[in-house]
């Protein structure tokens, strides 16, 4: 019975391989549980006019982005111009989801940092955010023509993410019939 002495070595090899794999991953970035599922329904007042409502219907019929943001979110400031660039380059409308914010703050923020959104839905309680599986701000969802979530970016969109993932995905979804 001499062969069992190699077992510890084998365990180590497995462990090191696994940990090495772990190093290539970002543990804090989670894929959305909603990928390839219909966007959760919502019915929220818009920022511009509290009496007007925007619903999931707005996501039907065209490829769109949903960007979750708030005026208290520092990372959103830098992201704002990038979101504008994406709409400019792809023509995809962005629906802003103003998450747990105060109306005056949000309105002022848009005048200061620019308004890349076609419409801003106000989720003051964060209830819709929970339905969308929003953990932090900013988060960005890609929704296709059928209103199905196809991609999600957690945190501020980086230059690389925009060029290598978001824009190609948006273009591909747009060109699909």
């Amino acid at each position: 019975m001499r062969w069992p002495v190699v077992i510890p070595g084998l365990v180590l090899i497995g462990l090191v391989a696994m940990l090495g794999y772990g190093l290539t991953r970002q543990p804090s970035i989670l894929p959305s549980a909603l990928l390839d599922r219909p966007a959760p329904a919502f019915n929220l007042p818009t920022l511009a006019n509290p009496d007007r409502h925007v619903t999931t219907q707005a996501l039907q019929g065209q490829v769109s982005l949903v960007n979750v943001w708030a005026s208290w979110c520092v990372a959103c400031r830098a992201e704002s111009s990038r979101v504008a660039e994406i709409t400019q380059r792809t023509g995809v409308p962005v629906i802003g989801l103003n998450y747990k914010d105060k109306r005056p703050d949000a309105t002022r923020w848009l005048t200061v940092f620019g308004n890349p959104f076609s419409v801003v839905a106000v989720d003051a309680s964060g209830r819709v955010g929970i339905d969308w599986g929003v953990a932090g701000v900013p988060e960005t969802f890609v929704v296709d023509r059928q209103g199905v979530i196809r991609y999600k970016v957690v945190g501020a969109i980086t230059e690389q993410q925009m060029n290598q993932r978001l824009i190609p995905i948006l273009n591909k979804l747009k060109s699909a019939s």
């Binding site: 002495v5 190699v6 510890p8 070595g9 180590l12 090899i13 090191v16 940990l19 090495g20 190093l23």
Partner: peptide, 17 residues
């Protein structure tokens, strides 16, 4: 550190085997 771990422990277990 993973390299160090693999080297130190791997070497020891080789010696052990």
């Amino acid at each position: 550190i993973l390299g160090l771990l693999a080297g130190v422990v791997g070497g020891s277990l080789l010696l052990y085997a």
